[in-house]
Amino acid sequence: MIRNMIGFGTGVLFGLGLAVSHMVDPGKVLGFLDFAGDWDPSLLIVMGVAVVVTFIAYRMAKGRSTPVFAELFQWPTKTAITDPRLLGGSAVFGAGWGLVGYCPGPGISSLAYFAPQTMVFVTSVVVGSGLAGFIPKARIPVVSGTP
């Protein structure tokens, strides 16, 4: 129950942050990705401030044995940086991001604007993510020796 409330509260904060910073507008995001045009660095500020706050929280978490309302911290375990899944997946995502101007967070949060484009985008993301969940990991070659 408490974990659901934390999920809800953090979701509201996230959705507010995306709306306040105009990151819900695909045009604003494309303005950031358009380095050769009239470049808009706003996204960099949003990400930079969010990273600093998260970094402080991360340092605080390191000083605790457990989270406040859960039994353990669940840290990602992979560390390889030459992982073809990481690079290939991120490149495919980035190309899709550049095509539309939406990443998953703003896509979902801006459903609040009831634009048909947003609904089509979110449906496509869910279908894509659901389908990718079926891709057997072994079929994608892992070049680095790290398990």
Binding site: M47, S90, F93, G105, S124, G130, I140
Partner: peptide, 18 residues
């Protein structure tokens, strides 16, 4: 197309902008 690429890419790559 962009949505499908975002769904597949973030899942395979293990994350998105957030």
């Amino acid at each position: 197309i962009g949505g499908l690429m975002t769904g597949v890419g973030t899942r395979v790559g293990g994350g998105c902008t957030s």
